[in-house]
């Protein structure tokens, strides 16, 4: 099996290995419901949820694996997991 670019089998930093393609479900952030409590940022095992100047969560879909923990944890149900087309 010849391995090309984009696979995590190649040597290098983990930052080079974008793991976003592993997702089946994609978290959609509903900013109107968000209270900026920051739980999603804390719970994210990938640490791929950032924050903008208004304090709203900004996910990095290049690395989000779609585990759904943020949506599970969100107290105001401002995150919905939606099936993604790859």
């Amino acid at each position: 099996m010849a391995i090309g670019t984009g696979c995590t089998a190649r040597p290098g930093k983990s930052r080079n290995n974008k793991t976003g393609s592993w997702r089946v479900f994609r978290p959609e952030f509903i900013n109107e419901k968000c209270t900026s409590c920051g739980m999603c940022r804390i719970i994210c095992p990938e640490g791929c949820i950032g924050e903008n100047e208004e304090g709203l969560p900004v996910p990095d879909y290049d690395y989000c694996k779609g585990c759904g923990l943020c949506a599970e944890e969100c107290p105001s149900e401002a995150i919905e997991m939606k099936k993604e087309e790859k």
């Binding site: 099996m1 696979c7 995590t8 089998a9």
Partner: peptide, 10 residues
């Protein structure tokens, strides 16, 4: 192959 998560397996 390489034993790392996300590597292609067969």
């Amino acid at each position: 192959g390489v034993e790392r998560r996300g590597a292609p397996v067969q």
